[in-house]
């Protein structure tokens, strides 16, 4: 039983919450761009990588980054570009739009589709493993790992943020309408982490 209602509204305006040593933060309007195209197309690859100043990851379940812009593998011909700075993103979007203004590739602004819940703490993986069908220790074993999977019944994308010697921290990308549901479950899950 939940002894009180913890809704995701308590994370509004960048407010940070802590439960049993697990920190929660919402990154609400991180700019996200969906990019699709053929990675065997040399021109597609070089122009987009030039604009992003990082490579497009072709290895499944990985990401590459340049400063605070992450390029996340979603599929063999699909990527998600997330700009955590939100600064010059419109320039970047327009640049990418210009590059991909053709029949073979496409670019879409999907910022409002998903929100990001950032979670960190020593027992983070133990908490997450309560809800996931994925073997998270294996899936996020390497730095720059990502995984698309199910959280109970909700489709999510998990991005590993920490380096090997740092405290575990992940970003969970989840549909805005389902964010509250998984936030409540996560907070509830922190209550018996010591067993």
């Amino acid at each position: 039983m939940l002894d009180r209602e913890n809704t995701i509204q308590e994370l509004h305006n960048g407010f940070i919450k802590e439960y049993s040593g697990i920190m929660f933060k919402e990154l609400a309007f991180v700019k996200k761009i969906n990019l699709r195209g053929d990675p065997n197309d040399k021109k597609f690859l070089s122009t987009n990588e030039g604009a992003l100043q990082s490579t497009l990851p072709t290895k499944p379940n990985t990401l590459t980054y340049n400063n605070n812009i992450k390029t996340i593998w979603l599929g063999p011909n699909e990527w998600l570009i997330a700009d955590y700075d939100n600064n010059n993103i419109n320039d970047l979007f327009l640049k990418l739009q210009d590059i991909n203004n053709n029949e073979e590739s496409s670019i879409t602004d999907v910022t409002e589709n998903r929100t990001i819940i950032r979670i960190s703490g020593g027992k983070l993986f133990k908490l997450l493993s309560k809800f996931l069908v994925l073997d998270i220790d294996k899936a996020l074993y390497n730095e720059s790992s990502v995984a698309q999977t199910l959280f109970i019944k909700v489709s999510i994308l998990i991005v590993r943020n920490h380096k090997d010697n740092e405290l575990p921290e992940v970003d969970i990308y989840v549909n805005r309408s389902q964010a509250n549901y998984i936030y409540k479950l996560l907070v509830d899950g922190t209550k018996n982490l010591d067993f």
């Binding site: 379940n61 063999p76 199910l150």
Partner: peptide
């Protein structure tokens, strides 16, 4: 073929 071995409920 892309992500590796996963639980059936993801499919």
């Amino acid at each position: 073929p892309y992500c590796g071995e996963r639980e059936q409920s993801e499919f």
